[in-house]
């Protein structure tokens, strides 16, 4: 296959392509799954703390 004859080299060649496809498929399937979001109010609270520190 692809001019390669050692099974472990053919295997790793395919694994490289396969693992990339795994990343691609995972990304597409989970495209819109959000989980726990960093909430806007928490960011605002952190920014206020920062401003106090800067002063």
């Amino acid at each position: 296959m692809f001019g390669l004859y050692d099974p472990s080299i053919i295997l790793v060649y395919l694994l490289c392509i396969g693992s990339t496809l795994l990343c691609v498929i995972y990304g597409i399937v989970h495209w819109n799954r959000s989980g726990v979001e960093v909430k806007a109010e928490k960011i605002i609270q952190w920014e206020k703390e920062e401003e106090t520190l800067e002063e």
Binding site: I17, S19, L21, C23, I28, H30, G35, V36
Partner: peptide
């Protein structure tokens, strides 16, 4: 990143990039 959504999408980009 703000949520897991961004990480999921980044997995796709990262895999292709490293290959």
């Amino acid at each position: 990143v703000r949520s897991s959504k961004e990480l999921n999408r980044a997995t796709l980009v990262g895999g292709i990039f490293i290959l």
